[in-house]
Simulated assay, not measured.
Amino acid sequence: MSVTKPIPSLRFPAPHLPQHGTAWRGAIGGMLGIAIAGGIGVILWGATTATLPWLVAPAGASAVLIFAVPASPLAQPWPLIGGNVLSACVGLLCGHLIGMPLMAGSLAVGLAIAAMSVARCMHPPGGACALLYALAASGPDKWNALHLVTIFANAVALGGVAWLFNNASGHSWPHRAPTPPSRSAHSALAHQALAATLAEWDEMIDADIADLDAIFQAVERRIRSIEQSAPPASQI
């Protein structure tokens, strides 16, 4: 007897909203990061220069990641800088070699994803960087290697602000997973089972295995605490 898998629902997922303090912290951090990154660009090459932009749009997407979800593996310093700059390089190459915006842009995004995967710097705004630089290089503006200065400066400035702001607000960045109070043979076995489960799923989960392991152990400790504090069944 065959079992038919249910078709996934197209309804909106249940909201998972951050606490108000976390939301405001991310909003303030993003605002400061973009303001400072843009300000540095203006200082370096002026707000009205026709040679280089002082800020590029993918920086806004990077700001969302590094300030709103700083614990994400996609929001760490190497993905922030490496993912953006590497993808921009791919975009420039595709734009100049192919010359047709649609083909250059689509190929650049695909190659950028592959390059970020190999370099272990997966960063979603990198796709936007690849597309932007491919379109600009194959368009009338003919962006060149000099334009890489902008995305590099934007990424480094955002990283500097994220390091200061996130750590000052109690969120380690670069992110470090919480250290469990103690590790037993059971917890080591749980870690191995967790790694095997993720490998079996063959899905990219936007969380580090160390964080998942720490969450699992914390939940187990909380359950044991509740069970130990519950009254015996004979007293209920």
Rank of each mutant, 00 (worst) to 15 (best):
L135R: 04
L52F: 12
S72N: 01
P174L: 10
M1W: 12
A168N: 10
A233D: 13
G46R: 01
I209M: 14
P13A: 09
V42N: 06
V85E: 06
T51H: 14
A114D: 08
A157S: 15
K142G: 11
K5D: 03
M122F: 14
P6F: 00
M116K: 04
S187W: 10
I236Q: 15
I7H: 12
E227Q: 10
A190S: 11
K142Y: 03
P181S: 04
G41E: 08
G159T: 07
A114P: 07
V69N: 07
A112S: 10
A230Y: 01
G41L: 09
S182Q: 12
A195R: 11
C121Y: 07
V118P: 03
P125D: 11
A162N: 10
A47W: 08
A145M: 12
A88Q: 04
F152K: 00
M100D: 14
S182R: 11
A59D: 00
A190E: 06
Q19V: 09
I28E: 02
T49V: 11
G41K: 13
I223H: 11
L97R: 07
A47K: 13
P53Y: 07
A61M: 01
G99E: 06
G29C: 05
A71K: 15
A155Y: 05
M1V: 03
I98N: 02
T4F: 09
Y133R: 02
A59C: 14
S72H: 10
Q192G: 06
Q19S: 13
L10D: 12
G159C: 11
T48L: 06
R25M: 03
A157L: 05
T49F: 01
N166A: 12
N84H: 14
A136Y: 01
N144Y: 00
L52V: 02
A196H: 12
F12C: 01
Y133F: 15
A210N: 13
I34K: 08
A47R: 14
S184N: 01
L55A: 08
G91K: 05
V90W: 05
L55V: 10
R120T: 11
S138V: 01
I223V: 15
H123L: 09
L146M: 13
P15N: 03
P15G: 00
L10P: 09
N166T: 09
A134H: 00
I113V: 15
L198R: 09
L74H: 09
N154W: 07
A128C: 02
G38E: 00
V156T: 07
N167L: 02
P181V: 03
R176P: 02
T197P: 03
E200D: 10
F12P: 02
L212P: 07
P232W: 04
A177N: 01
A128V: 03
V149C: 09
A199D: 15
L107S: 06
Q76F: 10
D141S: 14
A104Y: 02
L97S: 12
L65H: 05
F152T: 14
L52H: 10
L146A: 12
Q19A: 14
C129N: 15
L92E: 05
V149G: 12
D208H: 15
P124Q: 06
G30H: 04
A185L: 13
G29F: 00
S9W: 00
E203V: 12
I40F: 13
A196E: 08
G38L: 09
P174R: 02
A188F: 12
